[in-house]
């Protein structure tokens, strides 16, 4: 079970969190004209990298904040965690 550092609460066990998917996806701006292809990419297409990945976790049984976690998907090593509003490297 992973041990995730929540920037708001400290290190907590994985079972306090819900996984939220790829954190690098950016929602297209509201009211912006975009092609089917672009929208399709946003809604459906996700990379599933082996190795370093920036992902979202929701501290659902804690502070209820969404956080960003930089994790190695094959070793589970967590390099760094960020607040939702923090810029990632």
């Amino acid at each position: 079970m992973l041990y995730i550092f929540c920037p708001h609460c400290g290190s907590r066990s994985q079972n306090e969190f819900a996984y939220g998917g790829d954190a690098t996806v950016k929602r297209p701006e509201l009211n912006k004209e975009i092609s089917d292809q672009e929208w399709n990419n946003f809604v459906y297409l996700r990379k599933s990298p082996r190795g370093k990945h920036l992902e979202l976790w929701h501290h659902i049984s804690g502070c209820r904040q969404w956080i960003k976690v930089e994790r190695d998907t094959s070793t589970h090593e967590i390099f760094k965690t960020y607040r939702a509003d923090e810029l990632t490297e």
């Binding site: 929602r27 979202l56 929701h58 209820r64 969404w66 939702a84 509003d85």
Partner: peptide, 8 residues
């Protein structure tokens, strides 16, 4: 709701 308020 929290997702959109905190991240988007």
């Amino acid at each position: 709701l929290e997702y959109y308020l905190q991240l988007v």
